[in-house]
Nucleic acid binder design. Sequence first.
DNA 1: CCTATTTTGTACCCATCGGTACAGAACCTC
DNA 2: GAGGTTCTGTACCGATGGGTACAAAATAGG
Lengths: 199, 199
Amino acid sequence: MQVGRPRGFDRDAALDRALRVFWQKGFDGTSLTDLTAAMGINRPSLYATYGDKESLFRQAIERYVQVVACHVQGALEQPTARTVVEQLWRGSIELVRNPENPRGCFLVQGALVCSDAAQSVQQALAQQRLQGELALRQRFERAVAEGDLPSEVSVTDLARFVSTVSHGLAVQAAGGATVAELEAVAALAMQAIPAAASR
Amino acid sequence: MQVGRPRGFDRDAALDRALRVFWQKGFDGTSLTDLTAAMGINRPSLYATYGDKESLFRQAIERYVQVVACHVQGALEQPTARTVVEQLWRGSIELVRNPENPRGCFLVQGALVCSDAAQSVQQALAQQRLQGELALRQRFERAVAEGDLPSEVSVTDLARFVSTVSHGLAVQAAGGATVAELEAVAALAMQAIPAAASR
DNA sequence: CCTATTTTGTACCCATCGGTACAGAACCTC
DNA sequence: GAGGTTCTGTACCGATGGGTACAAAATAGG
């Protein structure tokens, strides 16, 4: 058993609260006072548990990918390229329905731009966005191999397009777009996704 | 003639420099020290000429719309809906070529999210984005009236889609995408723009 | 030249920033 | 209960944030 005074808060629950603050205000717009107030702990507890602000932010990224953006993994397991994209966008749009979630995508707005001091977290987020793009490309490669996408299409470009629309939807959501409006945009964007190759 | 000591710098040139800083670092990530260093002036001159940080930011928005995003107006004057969209995206992507411009769109990344104190500038940028969407919708209404777009399409949704892709491209650009990559995405997105109505 | 007017440079204001020292509180093992 | 260990609360640190007071400098009109 762990000796010493036990921690008085749930580590993941507090991390979730920190994530929401970073998500809503961005790295530069978030102060330690904002964080400790939302997490319900004080600074020494924060530093002892998560390290400094940047370290906390990086843990928030991990948490976001695993807990909030978990629909991405589900979407990638869909049987066809089109359903993958449909589920991806549908799931992203569904996030807006939950009023506990700040509007928009944390991976986009957490630190799209930032002060000089925060550039490493900016790069970390960009890296995560690229990671999503890569996963899509690999999924589309599989789709081509399975005859589910015409072999003429560039899976790289298609993955980048899907990623671009996702990020565009995130900006729209951050600007206050409704679920219905986002769904209409996604439906239009689906027209650019090639249908299954004829056989 | 104006009495008193003459201003020692060019108002618009210094505003351009301030715009670049806000564009690159965002409202929260930009300090007055960053601004005065880039503008080549000191704080009292800045405050006397532009007002406080928020006022300077709002003037930077105006400057951006009129000087940097001027290709939007040109695009709207294209003869058909498709060429409007083509020119819009082409012009936006061209901005990335100029190394003096920070990557991405100022209207998106200037304050996509922010601290509590900066919410009014966040709203001002969102308003400008909506303004662009509105201009597109009106242009598409004209296109429908001219038989240039099928009357079945929702011009509202189409405008929102074009705006969404634009903002997505901006996020891609901010993440380091090349001109060629952005052009490939735009080409794919064009497939969702309806062709001229058959007559 | 003298005065009125405006801009510039220095030097400063207070509030807040991220981060920490330190003492007391709360647990474990013995 | 004693000793060791870990966490919490307060109170603080130097640095930086946005913003300004004030005097010197530079012009125009007289």
